[in-house]
Structure formats: C-alpha cells, structure tokens
Simulated scan of single mutants.
Amino acid sequence: MKPAIAVVDIHRTFKVHTEFYANPSARKTIILINGSLATTAAFAQTIKYLQPQFNVVLYDQPYAGQSKAHNSHNKPISKEDEASILLELIEHFQANYLLSFSWGGVAAMLALAQRPARIEKAVITSFSPLLNEPMLDYLSKGMTHLKAIDGENVGQLVNSTIGKYLPSLFKRYNHRHISSLDNHEYLQMYAHINQVVHMDNHCQMECLSAIDIPLLFINGEHDEYTSPTDVRLFAKYLNDCQFATINNAGHFLDMEHKKAWLQSQTALLNFLQATPRAHSSYRPSEDLRHAIAV
C-alpha cells in the first residue's frame, strides 16, 4: 500500500515531508524517527512488520530527503529542534507509539522527557547513553571528513564501522547516498555530532527521570558502538525499561539478515502487545536510493 504524502508546517519554521501508511483495522499509530542523514527509506525493512499491525508515520528531517526542497538551509538545526518537530508530529498524527533508530534516539528521548500525553510506549533501537571508545573514534574520524565535506570518505567510514555487518547490496546503496549528499547535510551532521559529544552523558541523563512510559531498548549483539552492555545504564535512570539483544546482529539490526529481522519483529511487537503474523515476507528491499545512512 502506498502512503499518503503530506508536507507538514512546523511552527511556521520547518516544513516536513511525511508518509502515512494507513491500516484500516489498526487502533494504534506509531511514528518512526530516523538516524542522522537517513530518510524514510531507512525503515523499508521495519515497515514490513509494522504496517500490518499499526498505522505508521515516517518523515524526513528538514535538512534531508524529500523535506530538503521545502526548507532553507542557512544553519544547522539542533537536537532540541528535532525534538520539537517530533512532538508536533505526534500531535498532528495522534501517534500512540514511538520507534527511533540510532542517533534518532537523542531527539526521541528529549521529546519523551517532555511527557507527550499521547505516547504510551517507545522503542529505542541501536542507541546507547555512553560514547564508548569505538564510538568516539568513529565520531572523531567522521567529524574530520564531514567538516571537509568529503562524502566519499564519510561513506567508506560508515560502511566500515557501524555498517560493517550490512549486506553488500545495502552497503552499495548506503555509500551512493552518503557520498552524494548536499553540502549542508554534511555540515548538519558535523554540527549534530559536535552537539552530542558535548552533552552530559550524550543524552542529558538528568532529564530522563521525567520519562514516565515503558521503554524498550533493542541493540545488536555485535554492535560495539551502541552495545547491549552500555545501554543497560539506562536502568539506573528510568523507572520502566526493558532490554532486548538481537543475536548475531550489529548496528543496523533488521537490515542485516532475516533472523535479525524476525527477532526485531518479535521483540518490538511483543513489547507493544501486538501478535506477530505467522508468515514472514522478508527480502532485502531494493528501495534504498535515499539510503539508510547513519
């Protein structure tokens, strides 16, 4: 089913490309938050097991994908801006659940700390409260390439680090996407990393006690950058959180292989109290021209 496309005006400041996958039998709506520089195509695998259960909302950040043409790019936006955009979209689409991937977890948790009344549960994937040694090394190299607007090396870096367990087809699309971005997108990512590395504990841990809904954190067994061990630090700050580890998977989880896709499906749908479908329709999606990114 093709989504309903709309450009949503956020506070008369940003215009955001959205995709709404309606399910006539669904009683709940879930909104998905991309990682940095990714677009709605990043969730091509995830939507296969979400849309049969929920209404699904995807969107591109103002600086990325199909939102780019509707916005000026005079300066980078902050993670607080991204959290504000998310809160507005939650209200606009009356979302009940939230799912974030990778760096999208920063904006997601900043938004959740403001206690959006509609959100009942949230799933945070491939995210960690710590910037460990592998992540700091990755970010340091990334900032060098991003500041130089060196897309070729940014693409190679992503595929050789957090993307090293991706299938070769996905790596090719990922590199093609990352190496051909507009200049402002590299500068946006540079500004984003610069902001994150100067945050207290990476995601402002002191604000997490305000989050009052159940959270599920999903990480890959072999993801050294946002590891299953590091993510458990959240248990010290959150009243209601669970953890799931996807076996034999890295940072990109359900994109990496069928078993990881099935485990991700089960963990997420069980947490949201939905029954997974008995049949599976996994196949690596060809629709990755807008890429999976970071």
Results as ranks from 00 to 15, higher is better:
residue 86 L to P: 01
residue 43 F to A: 05
residue 283 R to A: 14
residue 231 V to E: 06
residue 212 D to P: 01
residue 99 L to T: 02
residue 197 V to C: 07
residue 2 K to L: 11
residue 163 G to Q: 05
residue 138 Y to K: 11
residue 56 V to N: 05
residue 19 E to F: 10
residue 286 E to H: 13
residue 211 I to G: 02
residue 140 S to G: 13
residue 159 N to F: 01
residue 70 H to Y: 15
residue 172 R to F: 10
residue 118 R to N: 15
residue 19 E to H: 05
residue 264 S to G: 02
residue 269 L to G: 07
residue 47 I to Y: 04
residue 228 P to S: 09
residue 293 A to V: 04
residue 271 F to W: 03
residue 92 H to F: 13
residue 44 A to W: 03
residue 151 G to Y: 02
residue 11 H to Q: 13
residue 219 N to G: 03
residue 227 S to I: 08
residue 141 K to T: 04
residue 118 R to P: 05
residue 95 A to R: 00
residue 222 H to I: 06
residue 67 S to W: 07
residue 166 L to C: 07
residue 143 M to E: 11
residue 23 N to R: 12
residue 209 S to D: 15
residue 213 I to T: 05
residue 23 N to G: 06
residue 9 D to G: 04
residue 109 M to S: 08
residue 43 F to Y: 14
residue 128 S to I: 06
residue 242 Q to H: 15
residue 158 V to D: 01
residue 78 S to A: 10
residue 210 A to L: 11
residue 141 K to W: 01
residue 292 I to E: 00
residue 205 M to R: 09
residue 120 E to G: 03
residue 39 T to W: 01
residue 208 L to A: 09
residue 250 G to T: 06
residue 15 K to G: 00
residue 246 I to D: 00
residue 270 N to Y: 05
residue 33 I to L: 14
residue 125 T to Y: 00
residue 212 D to M: 04
residue 117 A to L: 13
residue 48 K to L: 13
residue 100 S to V: 05
residue 291 A to F: 07
residue 44 A to L: 04
residue 169 L to T: 12
residue 42 A to Q: 15
residue 229 T to L: 12
residue 79 K to P: 00
residue 45 Q to M: 14
residue 159 N to I: 11
residue 194 N to D: 15
residue 22 A to P: 02
residue 17 H to G: 03
residue 31 I to V: 15
residue 127 F to V: 07
residue 184 H to V: 08
residue 87 L to W: 02
residue 194 N to H: 15
residue 2 K to E: 13
residue 290 H to M: 12
residue 60 D to Q: 04
residue 120 E to M: 07
residue 123 V to W: 00
residue 268 L to Q: 09
residue 261 W to D: 01
residue 158 V to M: 08
residue 54 F to A: 06
residue 155 G to E: 05
residue 184 H to S: 12
residue 3 P to F: 08
residue 28 K to H: 13
residue 229 T to N: 13
residue 220 G to A: 06
residue 23 N to I: 08
residue 135 M to F: 14
residue 51 Q to I: 14
residue 25 S to F: 14
residue 10 I to R: 06
residue 277 R to G: 14
residue 291 A to P: 04
residue 34 N to S: 14
residue 268 L to I: 15
residue 10 I to V: 15
residue 33 I to S: 10
residue 154 V to W: 00
residue 26 A to M: 09
residue 249 A to F: 00
residue 267 A to H: 12
residue 205 M to S: 12
residue 112 L to F: 03
residue 169 L to R: 13
